[in-house]
Nucleic acid binder design. Structure first.
Lengths: 251, 251
DNA sequence: CGGTTATTTGACCGACTTCAACTGCAGTGG
DNA sequence: CCACTGCAGTTGAAGTCGGTCAAATAACCG
């Protein structure tokens, strides 16, 4: 039971943020999590066309959900953090229409959908919890559409960082407004629908205005209020995470 | 049963496209559909912040899911067609984070989530069907992210029209490559993340190249292959609708 | 160190936006 | 029947945000 189980706790703790669990339910949840598999940065975890027969729980590192356009153009549709339950309940669809890839050296638990279905059948409240995980990602994706379609580059970047901070906070990975942030700028650009070069200039804009400090390893939010103001950030769509303001986890 | 039930049939027929139903299940489904409510073009059906206590089945006309930015910037996140089951199973979330509005004079059935839950509990296969409806919309939204983030304006418009044609076809609303299309250009622009003016020029480009005919009432696909080519369209993400090519419904 | 990859900077270009005016059309009321 | 109104669509010109190309620096990696 030592530190090896801390990632599992992160997972169950996140579920409990939106769904209260009995001891029995929580135990069933813990038993779901398998031994972690390691993926180096850039590795493909699951690809377009694959059977949707597994779900994924990131334990360390960041996972990206992405689609590409054949000529190299690429869009990251969602970022999945430690504690998220990726593709829970998605097995009702036949095949994947997007791919999962490690945005960083990562450890993930791979769960067969059949085991998830068994647990969901036995514990209706857990099925509800799984659905919440899925619909939360949907709500986040919808906010991203707004980000990409209607916000300017600075607004979009600021908004993405606000969202990420709230979510990192909710799983206890943000300390003093700082957390590990090992994105390549190209990945960030692919998440925002920008070119890497323009993204670079936009990052510098946020740096110069004193909103953030950002190097290859770490992101630090220096001026949360200004960052939220630039982004026009309203975290209501993340409300079930129980975080009210950027950098302020409930409890 | 006369023509009054044709919209209901469109709904059950669409569900049966991805989920085979027993007579009993189908009957339960039909009983779910309530008397239609009329919304004039532009009317708000449900708004940000509302309780997620209803689901919606468009029977006539188009529904848009949208989010706005306070200063008037607006993004349409999804278009819902007759036969779709909107927000099925979404009641696990507390509040709406986007709004639903009639893009056209519309008739919709409004279903209390409690009734959906009762039916889903009684018929597991129907719960599966409801989930498929939800995840299909998710898959479509993800493709839209790519549309807005990485495709050029012409590609994006062409792609949207390809998708819409497949979906209209799947619910029997497309005849000879033509169907009613009463979008204002501003709405189309809001769906693509463009300005109405630029969208206008892009429409003309597709018109001039002989891909489409489009007036205030009707869209006609004149050259399906060229349109798909312009869009780089691959309809695999719509596969559970059982339509293989634009303008070719299965069966 | 040398080789590679990521970030940064500069100059230029183009897709898309904005502003403004004009057209066409449907509805309304005189 | 026809002005009048209002809205959607169209066109033109000018501006900007963000993209592309190219090269320099900086960080990493064996």
């Amino acid at each position: 039971m030592g530190s090896a189980h801390i990632p599992v706790d992160r997972f169950t703790a996140k579920i409990r943020r939106h769904t209260p669990l009995s001891a029995e339910e929580q135990e069933a949840l813990v038993k779901l999590v398998s031994r972690p598999v390691f993926y180096p940065s850039g590795a493909t975890i699951a690809d377009v066309g694959d059977l949707l027969d597994i779900a994924t729980i990131p334990l360390e590192g960041l996972i990206g959900r992405s689609k590409s356009l054949g000529d190299g153009r690429r869009q990251i549709l969602a970022v999945l953090l430690p504690g998220d339950f990726v593709d829970a309940q998605a097995s009702v669809m036949r095949h994947r229409t997007d791919s999962l890839e490690a945005l960083d050296d990562s450890k993930v638990a791979i769960i067969p959908q059949s085991r998830i279905e068994a647990v969901a059948a036995a514990f209706p409240r857990l099925r509800e919890a799984f659905l919440r995980e899925a619909f939360l990602e949907t709500a986040i994706t919808r906010e991203w559409v707004l980000n990409i379609g209607r916000r300017t580059a600075v607004e979009g970047l600021a908004h993405l960082l606000c969202e990420l901070t709230v979510r990192m906070d909710a799983v206890g990975l943000c300390r003093d407004g700082r957390y590990p942030f090992r994105w390549r700028q190209q990945q960030l650009a692919d998440a925002l629908g920008l070119s890497a070069i323009h993204l670079n200039r936009v990052i510098q804009e946020l740096r110069r205005s004193g909103c953030i400090r950002l190097d290859r390893e770490t992101l630090e939010i220096l001026d949360r209020d200004r960052l939220c103001a630039v982004a026009g950030f309203d975290g209501t769509y993340l409300e079930i995470l129980g975080v009210d303001r950027v950098g302020e986890a409930a409890e």
